[in-house]
Simulated assay, not measured.
Amino acid sequence: MRKGKTFTMKGKKWNKGINYRTLEELFKITNKGSETFTYDISVSVVEVYNEQIRDLLAPVTTSKRLEIKQAREGLHHIPGLVEAKLENIKEVLDVIKIENSARPVGSNNVNKHSSNSH
C-alpha cells in the first residue's frame, strides 16, 4: 500500500488521518469547555489540482470559478467556498463521505503521475 499525502491527511478506519484526529481532539476540547464557552466549528474542503480550485462540498452542479484572495498580510480566503457547520464527530464523518465522493482519484494520461491517482 502506498502511503502519501492522502493517507496522512485522511487515513483509514483503523488508522485515522490528521484531519479526522484533529477534529476529534477539537470536539473533546470544546466539550470540556462547553459550560464556559460557546463554540462554532465549521470546515471547508478544497482540492487544488492543475491550478484549478474545486470546492469538494459544493453540489456537483455548481460550476463557479473559485479564486484565492489575500485578505491581510499572510491571510488568505476563498470567497464562495461552502462551509459545513459541525456539531459533533459524526458530522465530521458525513463531511468526509461527501468529500470522498467528490474527489476524483482515477488514473488517466493527464493525472497518472498525480499523488491523487493512487
Rank of each mutant, 00 (worst) to 15 (best):
M1E: 05
R2E: 13
K3A: 06
K3G: 05
K3R: 15
K3Q: 13
G4Q: 04
G4A: 09
K5Y: 12
T6W: 02
T6Y: 09
F7H: 13
T8F: 10
T8M: 12
M9D: 01
M9L: 13
M9E: 10
K10G: 01
G11I: 01
G11H: 06
K12D: 11
K12F: 06
K12Q: 10
K12Y: 02
K13D: 12
W14I: 05
I18F: 03
I18Q: 05
Y20A: 12
Y20L: 09
E24M: 00
E25W: 02
E25L: 09
F27K: 04
F27D: 02
F27M: 07
K28Q: 14
K28M: 11
K28H: 13
I29S: 11
T30L: 00
T30R: 07
N31W: 05
N31A: 11
K32C: 07
K32I: 05
G33R: 14
S34W: 03
E35I: 07
F37R: 11
T38V: 08
T38F: 06
T38N: 12
D40S: 14
V43Y: 07
V43C: 14
V43S: 03
V45R: 00
V48L: 15
E51P: 00
Q52E: 12
I53P: 03
R54E: 04
D55I: 06
L57V: 01
T62I: 02
T62E: 15
T62D: 15
S63W: 01
K64Q: 06
R65A: 03
L66P: 03
E67P: 01
E67Q: 11
K69L: 08
Q70E: 15
Q70W: 04
Q70H: 09
A71D: 11
R72N: 11
G74Q: 08
G74A: 08
H76R: 14
H77N: 12
H77E: 11
P79W: 08
P79Q: 11
P79G: 04
P79N: 11
L81D: 09
V82W: 04
V82G: 02
A84Q: 15
L86N: 06
E87V: 05
E91M: 13
E91G: 06
L93P: 04
L93N: 12
V95H: 03
V95M: 13
I96C: 03
I96E: 14
I96R: 07
K97H: 06
K97Y: 04
I98V: 10
I98P: 01
I98R: 10
N100W: 03
N100S: 13
S101F: 10
S101Q: 15
A102N: 15
A102H: 15
A102M: 15
A102I: 02
R103M: 13
R103D: 05
P104Q: 10
P104L: 10
G106E: 14
G106S: 11
N108I: 05
N109G: 08
V110C: 07
K112L: 04
S115N: 10
N116W: 06
H118G: 15
